[in-house]
Amino acid sequence: MSTPTFPPLMQGVAVSGGEAPFDRARAMAAMGCDGGTVVHNVQADRLRAALVFAPEVALAEAMAMLPLCGVGFQNALGALAPPEVAVHLTWEGGIRVNGALCGQLQVAADTSDPALVPDWLVVGLDLVLLQTTEDPGETPDRTALYEEGCADVPAEQLLESWARHVMTWINRWESDGNGPLHAEWMGLVPGVGEAVTRAGISGIFLGVDERFGMLIRDDATTHLVPLTDVLEDEA
């Protein structure tokens, strides 16, 4: 297994066995590690990684890193996988490959106050490479990357590509704001115009606002569920 190579301003930290990169990254961030640290654990059936950010904007704005990392993943897999492989990103961070759930992005920060600038923010990636159940047909809504025509995509190469595309999008976000990211991401989000329930609100998923908050229309009004609703509990 090769050692992944990351772009300038990113540094890799490998963990092994059952250790979760997302948990290690949160602990390292709380101890003051540098932004750009990529904690990763590549196994035969699973690719997990987490990227530490050191935001300079309030949490409400910094939450854009979740959809940004999702778009970076879609771009990375799109560059390596056969052209017929379709990748979609759910609002809460799910990764769907050819219509079935294949992985998950998650996000945590040292604060849940949208008005505060976080000391750190971590986005984690957890991708299933191989199904380990005896009968994958029992869970048709779930899949694995290598079962969707991507068996020739090396996990380490996908990890490297994800990091490069994330860095490209960070640079674009810093220069151009949310607009280009919003346009790219909304083209990948399924379920717009369909019924949804989130944060105790049920209605039609209309799309998102400029900060990627979910807009839900019920019989009476349009509700906004901010993206901070998907934050993991503080460590």
Rank of each mutant, 00 (worst) to 15 (best):
H88V: 02
A163P: 01
D45W: 05
G149T: 10
V107I: 15
H165A: 13
D152I: 06
E184W: 11
Q157T: 13
D219V: 05
A235E: 07
V71Q: 10
E194M: 09
C33R: 09
A183D: 15
Y146E: 08
G179S: 15
G137A: 14
L181C: 11
R142T: 08
D113L: 10
N41P: 02
V189N: 06
A30G: 10
F205Q: 07
T143D: 05
D141V: 03
V153A: 12
S16I: 06
V71N: 03
N178L: 14
Q157V: 14
V225W: 08
H182F: 15
P83Q: 12
A163G: 07
A109P: 03
G36T: 04
V71C: 13
L129I: 05
V153T: 06
A30W: 04
Q131D: 14
L231D: 07
R46K: 12
L51Q: 01
T139M: 14
L158D: 01
A79Y: 04
T132Y: 02
I201E: 05
R46H: 10
G137C: 08
W169F: 12
E56I: 00
R164Y: 13
R48M: 11
L129C: 12
H223V: 06
D113W: 06
L68A: 03
M31A: 15
G149C: 12
D219L: 11
L159I: 03
C150P: 04
A20S: 13
T143S: 12
V38I: 13
P190C: 09
A14G: 04
P21W: 08
L51G: 01
L47I: 03
A100F: 04
M31R: 15
L127K: 04
T5M: 07
D110N: 12
A60E: 11
A25T: 05
T5P: 00
A108Q: 09
T222S: 13
V153N: 07
M214P: 06
M167N: 06
P7T: 10
A30V: 03
L68M: 09
G72W: 01
V208E: 13
A27W: 05
V42M: 05
P67E: 04
G32F: 12
V39R: 03
L231C: 11
A60S: 11
L68E: 04
S2D: 07
R26G: 09
V107F: 04
D218H: 07
E148H: 14
A60Q: 11
W173M: 09
P114F: 11
A20H: 10
E232G: 05
V85S: 07
